[in-house]
Design a protein around this nucleic acid. Structure first.
Length: 105
DNA sequence: GTAATGACCAGGC
DNA sequence: AGCCTGGCCATTA
């Protein structure tokens, strides 16, 4: 079915997949890069439903505060943090320095 | 059809 | 720093 989500999902996933290794992006930016301004929320909704094993680097997507969108200390939070650290993204005080790692084309 | 929810954001206090 | 509000849009009940 060619629902809106179907199309937007591809655009958003494509935008997320375009984030280079070692960089991160915010939800708002991802939506904007996908050609869907102000769809930040939709990005979260889609990533949430994303099947595990997907090749989408969802861990490179953060909220505008440079923090992970999960409660600090939770399982998915640790998982995402770990993945980012493997890509040379450093955490300072539990937050990421967006000035340094934010990907802006 | 309406109402509530969400891995959000920016602005105001 | 924090918390609340309005907005945005798709999904879900």
């Amino acid at each position: 079915m060619t629902s809106t989500a179907e199309i937007n999902q591809q655009k958003i996933l494509q935008a997320v997949a375009a984030i280079p290794k070692g960089y991160v992006c915010t939800y708002g930016k991802v939506a904007e890069l996908a050609g869907l301004p102000r769809h930040a929320r939709l990005v979260g909704n889609i990533l949430k439903k994303l099947p595990s094993g997907s090749k989408i680097p969802w861990h490179r997507v953060l909220n505008s505060q440079g923090r992970l969108s999960f409660p600090e200390g939770s399982e998915p939070w640790q998982h995402q943090k770990e993945r980012l650290e493997l890509e040379e993204v450093d955490f300072l005080n539990g937050k990421i320095n967006l000035k340094r790692y934010l990907w802006e084309p």
